[in-house]
Lab assay of single mutants.
Amino acid sequence: GMDVRRLKVNELREELQRRGLDTRGLKAELAERLQAALSGPSSG
């Protein structure tokens, strides 16, 4: 899988935006949010 901790802030935001998620917050928050999205149930 993707290691969200290795991504830069702008990369985290890009991935979040692609999934329609909130791109605001600290890098740690963005990484946590993206990780949750990646490990969560895949819809679609």
Rank of each mutant, 00 (worst) to 15 (best):
L7R: 02
E32P: 02
G20L: 03
Q35G: 06
V9M: 13
D3F: 08
A36N: 10
E14W: 15
L30T: 01
R13V: 08
L7A: 03
Q35T: 09
E11I: 05
G25Y: 00
V4L: 08
K8C: 07
L12F: 01
L21W: 01
P41W: 13
G20T: 00
V9D: 04
R18N: 06
T23N: 05
L16Y: 02
A36M: 10
V4E: 01
D22R: 07
E11N: 04
E14N: 10
D3E: 08
A31C: 14
S42N: 13
T23V: 07
A28F: 09
R6N: 10
G25S: 01
S43R: 09
N10A: 13
Q35D: 05
Q35K: 10
A36K: 12
V9S: 05
D22A: 07
A37V: 08
G40N: 13
L12K: 00
E15R: 05
N10I: 08
E15Y: 07
A28E: 11
L30P: 00
T23P: 09
G1M: 13
R24G: 09
Q35R: 14
E14V: 11
E14M: 15
Q17G: 11
R5K: 10
E15L: 11
L21D: 02
V4A: 06
E11F: 05
L30F: 00
Q17F: 14
R13P: 00
S43V: 12
S43H: 12
G1A: 13
G44D: 11
P41A: 14
S39A: 12
R5I: 06
D3I: 10
R24I: 07
K8W: 04
L21M: 07
K8I: 03
L30M: 06
R6Q: 09
G25D: 01
A31P: 00
E11D: 06
R33N: 01
K8R: 11
E14A: 15
K27Q: 09
M2F: 15
Q17P: 00
G44L: 13
R19E: 02
E14D: 10
R13W: 04
L21E: 03
L26T: 15
D3G: 06
R19L: 14
G44E: 11
T23I: 08
E15P: 00
V9P: 04
S42W: 08
S43M: 12
P41D: 12
Q35W: 14
E15H: 07
G20R: 04
V4P: 08
R5D: 06
E14K: 15
V9E: 07
S42A: 12
E32L: 13
L7E: 01
D22T: 05
E29P: 02
K27D: 05
G1Y: 08
G25L: 02
N10R: 15
G20K: 04
R18P: 01
L7I: 03
E11M: 06
V9F: 13
R13S: 02
L34V: 02
D22G: 05
R24Q: 11
R19N: 03
E11Q: 14
L12D: 00
S39P: 05
